[in-house]
């Protein structure tokens, strides 16, 4: 393990370099999408103030550099990005980067808890199915996971609200905490958790199905391997064979897939956040669409892409730690 640390450092540097062209392409695409959007910053400000003469519009355009040749504008845009300046949102009256950074933690918490829930339940269910492969418990669960796989997240979110918040009154209908109450200590944490249960569950259901199916297939394959037969032959208990020999190897493809799904989870979080009024990037994207504020919308696209790249890198590193066979060239 000690000897691997420099290798892992090299892996991080190499992956970061690998990500640079992707980010650059995304930035340029972002710039042109912004140009395609109906109305520029001058239009937005004019609309906010209620009236504008042609001279005022010209003045605004030259102040924002919107009258420059397009390549020069692109250059300015990239220069601003390097200084973490994503522009100013006239609608929200805040710099775009501040708006977005305020919302990143909310989305990350939601995503990561949904991923943790779906991995834990999915792996447990998939392992259970593999133990009963082909028999009725496996078949019944297969139908249930197939159903989970087909549920629109926003719809099951609404239905969970109807059942748990409106009917049973066990959980709040939305938001991330009670309004106007200072939360602290253990009880504060518990209250926060209560607000997270429904959004995280709605987001997780689809991925529970994905991981259950994958784990099932992967465990069935691992069980047929020679080293499992050896482990059984030397008299290890069923449980020890499963945890120590089968699952250790079967779970690698699952963790790889978990990394790939992060982008999807982030996209799913967008919809779930609007259902539960959860203060994250998704809800911000929705508010930006409703306000036709494209600089904020594209900022969300840019930042969520960067989050995906960063988390994928993290998954690579974790895998390199877990599995010594992964080559670090």
């Amino acid at each position: 393990m000690q000897g691997r640390l420099p290798d892992i450092a090299r892996l991080i540097v190499r992956s970061a370099f690998h990500a640079v062209p992707t980010i650059l392409v995304i930035l340029v695409a972002n710039f042109f999408l912004l140009r395609l959007a109906p109305g520029d910053a001058a239009d937005v400000i004019a609309a906010e103030s209620g009236f504008a003469t042609d001279e005022m519009m010209e003045g605004l355009r030259s102040r924002f550099g919107l009258d420059l040749p397009i390549l020069e504008q692109l250059q300015n845009y990239l220069g601003h990005i390097l200084r973490f300046d994503l522009g100013y949102s006239a609608r929200f009256n805040t710099p775009v980067i501040d708006l977005i950074l305020q919302r990143v933690p909310g989305t990350l918490i939601l995503m990561l808890s949904a991923m943790a829930i779906s991995l834990m339940i999915g792996i447990a269910v998939g392992t259970f199915q593999a133990t009963f492969a082909g028999r009725w418990p496996d078949r019944v669960i297969a139908v249930v996971t197939q159903l989970f796989y087909s549920l629109p997240g926003f719809w099951i979110g609404l239905m969970l609200i109807v059942f748990f918040a409106v009917r049973l009154r066990w959980l709040p209908t939305g938001g991330s905490g009670p309004i106007g109450v200072e939360l602290s200590g253990l009880s504060g944490l518990l209250i926060r958790l209560k607000y997270m249960v429904l959004p995280a569950t709605s987001l997780a259901l689809f991925y529970v199905a994905v991981y259950a199916r994958l784990t099932r297939a992967s465990v069935i394959e691992a069980k047929a391997q020679d080293y499992v037969r050896t482990a059984r032959a030397k008299g290890l208990s069923q449980f020890k064979v499963m945890t120590g020999h089968v699952l250790r190897n079967a779970l690698l493809p699952v963790t790889t897939l978990a990394g790939i799904h992060l982008g999807g989870l982030l996209g799913g979080a967008v919809v779930i956040e609007t259902v539960y009024a959860w203060p994250g990037l998704g809800r911000l994207a929705y508010e930006a669409v409703m306000a036709r504020d494209f600089s904020v919308l594209l900022g969300v696209l840019l930042l969520s892409s960067i989050v995906v790249i960063a988390v994928n890198l993290l998954v690579d590193v974790i895998q390199a730690f877990i599995d010594p066979r992964i080559e670090l060239k």
Binding site: G264, V289, R292, S304
Partner: peptide, 13 residues
């Protein structure tokens, strides 16, 4: 790379 639903929202909007 970008979350497909976010990209979808941007393009449609």
């Amino acid at each position: 790379t970008p979350p497909s639903f976010v990209l979808l929202m941007v393009v449609v909007a």
